[in-house]
Simulated assay, not measured.
Amino acid sequence: MDLRQLRYFVAVARERNFTRAAQLLNIAQPPLSRQIQSLEEELGVALLTRDSRPIRLTEAGRLFYEQSLQVLGRVEQMRTATRRVGLNQNAILSIGFVASTLYERLPSLVRKLRQHAPELEIQLLEMVSVQQIPALKEGRIDIGFGRLHHNDPNVIGVVLHEEGLIVAIPKSTPFAQETRPLPVTALTGQKLIVYPKEPRPGYADHVLNLVHGHDVQLAEVQEVREIQTALGLVAADAGLCIIPSSARQMRADVHYRALEGERATSPIILYHRVGDNSHFVDLVRELTREMYAENSP
Score class of each variant (00 low, 15 high):
residue 244 P to E: 02
residue 248 R to P: 02
residue 26 N to E: 14
residue 106 L to M: 07
residue 267 P to H: 09
residue 66 E to A: 08
residue 6 L to Y: 12
residue 29 Q to M: 14
residue 229 T to L: 09
residue 252 A to D: 14
residue 171 K to N: 09
residue 230 A to P: 04
residue 166 I to L: 04
residue 174 P to F: 10
residue 12 V to D: 12
residue 10 V to F: 01
residue 124 L to C: 04
residue 255 H to E: 06
residue 219 A to F: 05
residue 50 R to V: 07
residue 174 P to L: 13
residue 6 L to K: 12
residue 186 A to T: 05
residue 161 H to W: 03
residue 115 Q to H: 12
residue 5 Q to T: 12
residue 224 V to C: 05
residue 160 L to H: 05
residue 73 G to Y: 02
residue 175 F to Q: 11
residue 87 L to Q: 15
residue 175 F to W: 07
residue 93 L to E: 03
residue 286 E to V: 03
residue 52 S to G: 00
residue 265 T to I: 13
residue 211 V to Y: 01
residue 47 L to P: 07
residue 293 A to V: 01
residue 113 L to I: 15
residue 220 E to T: 03
residue 194 V to L: 08
residue 58 T to A: 03
residue 33 S to M: 03
residue 144 G to M: 05
residue 278 S to I: 04
residue 232 G to W: 01
residue 93 L to M: 05
residue 186 A to W: 06
residue 115 Q to E: 15
residue 124 L to R: 05
residue 14 R to H: 09
residue 270 L to M: 14
residue 200 R to T: 10
residue 190 Q to S: 08
residue 233 L to R: 10
residue 185 T to L: 08
residue 23 Q to Y: 12
residue 18 F to C: 13
residue 75 V to M: 13
residue 295 N to H: 13
residue 47 L to R: 04
residue 296 S to R: 15
residue 57 L to Q: 14
residue 103 Y to L: 03
residue 225 R to V: 14
residue 154 N to W: 03
residue 85 V to R: 15
residue 94 S to E: 10
residue 67 Q to N: 03
residue 222 Q to V: 11
residue 135 A to R: 05
residue 203 Y to P: 08
residue 9 F to G: 00
residue 1 M to E: 11
residue 188 T to P: 01
residue 202 G to N: 10
residue 199 P to R: 06
residue 154 N to I: 00
residue 256 Y to G: 07
residue 293 A to S: 10
residue 243 I to N: 05
residue 141 I to Q: 04
residue 119 E to P: 03
residue 132 Q to L: 04
residue 73 G to F: 01
residue 136 L to R: 07
residue 43 L to P: 08
residue 117 A to Y: 04
residue 284 V to L: 14
residue 84 R to M: 15
residue 239 G to L: 03
residue 232 G to L: 08
residue 76 E to S: 11
residue 58 T to R: 07
residue 122 I to K: 06
residue 35 Q to W: 03
residue 258 A to S: 12
residue 189 G to V: 02
residue 39 L to A: 07
residue 54 P to Q: 03
residue 125 L to Y: 04
residue 83 R to Q: 15
residue 283 L to S: 06
residue 29 Q to W: 01
residue 45 V to C: 02
residue 253 D to Y: 09
residue 3 L to R: 07
residue 180 R to D: 14
residue 227 I to Y: 00
residue 280 F to D: 11
residue 27 I to G: 08
residue 226 E to D: 07
residue 265 T to S: 12
residue 43 L to H: 10
residue 230 A to S: 11
residue 32 L to S: 07
residue 83 R to A: 15
residue 73 G to M: 04
residue 109 L to Y: 13
residue 70 Q to H: 13
residue 204 A to K: 13
residue 216 V to F: 00
residue 285 R to T: 12
residue 235 A to M: 08
residue 103 Y to P: 00
residue 57 L to S: 10
residue 167 V to R: 00
residue 173 T to F: 09
residue 157 G to R: 01
residue 282 D to V: 05
residue 170 P to D: 06
residue 259 L to Q: 07
residue 7 R to T: 12
residue 272 H to Q: 12
residue 249 Q to C: 14
residue 224 V to S: 09
residue 203 Y to T: 08
residue 122 I to V: 15
residue 55 I to L: 15
residue 60 A to N: 15
residue 284 V to G: 12
residue 264 A to N: 02
residue 114 R to S: 11
residue 152 D to L: 01
residue 211 V to T: 00
